[in-house]
Design a protein around this nucleic acid. Structure first.
Lengths: 142, 142
DNA sequence: GCTTGCGTTGGAGTGCAGACCAAGGTTTAT
DNA sequence: ATAAACCTTGGTCTGCACTCCAACGCAAGC
């Protein structure tokens, strides 16, 4: 497939495809006699694969790391699997954060009238619910 | 509280706090006689609030919009509530995407050996599972 | 009262993730 | 065989979200 076909298939710009390839997010794409990119099935799958993971918020860094390992061959299989597991775990954590925020927003939507009156509720509404709740620093009175 | 205290409390840089204020992510922070920022409870809650929503992936645009509406007063209450609802719905959608990716990663982790052998499985593993699956474009054979 | 270390603003710089452009080669259609 | 529509690379530009100065004011400790 040409770059144009791939870009249309996945609704990505050609620039994005070239960019991804340049920074190592994709393996080297095969070229035809004129030096034009000619995506084979392997390459097309990679594009889709990257697209999905990017869309799910996976860090580009992890993806390049993964592609790098893949290039290094079979002996990196364990490292790659570990990377997947880490990514999965990260996403699970991310989902938990989103869950908390959804609950918080639901609370605010339900109590919208109250909310208008007291900002102090902001914090109370999710304190103890959100992982990154600010450390209870010794709080100078002034 | 001083900017330093707030930045330590929330683990944000002072620059970030000033930046957020500058672009309208935070309401105007009260100043003391020397022009120093002196965060009151209201302001501190806002910082926390923005921090949480940002961390949950909420678009900055929506947050500035919200602060803008809040400045305009009580008559914008409906618009603000609508914004919350939209944000909640966005997050629900985002969570669904993450769920799909988690399932996909779990599949890949479970079938890691297979995966090493056939890239074609990439696509099969989640086609029909991911919303943005590529349109089945009429695919020129070459 | 002077140094040290805070704070202020305005402006410039950084890194990411592309988007855009120019100069040139290739393919297709007439 | 010439135009139109592709492709290539290399480079520059943009917008976001900070991040880091520079130049100055204020405040606390000695």
């Amino acid at each position: 497939m040409t770059i144009d076909e791939v870009s249309k298939k996945f609704n990505l710009t050609k620039d994005t495809l070239r960019y991804w390839e340049r920074i190592g997010l994709l393996p080297d794409i095969p070229r035809n006699d004129s030096g034009y990119r000619d995506y084979d099935q392997h390459a097309v799958n990679w594009v889709y694969y990257i697209m999905v993971l990017r869309k799910a918020g996976m860090a580009i860094e992890s993806l390049t790391e993964f592609v790098k390992l893949l290039r290094e061959g079979d002996q990196t299989a364990d490292a790659r699997k570990a990377l997947f597991i880490k990514q999965r775990d990260d996403l699970v954590e991310q989902r938990a954060n989103i869950d908390k925020t959804i609950r918080y927003l639901n609370f605010k939507i339900d109590h919208f009238e109250d909310h208008m009156l007291s900002y102090e509720n902001e914090k109370l509404a999710y304190e103890g619910e959100f992982d990154d709740s600010p450390a209870q620093t010794t709080q100078k009175s002034k």
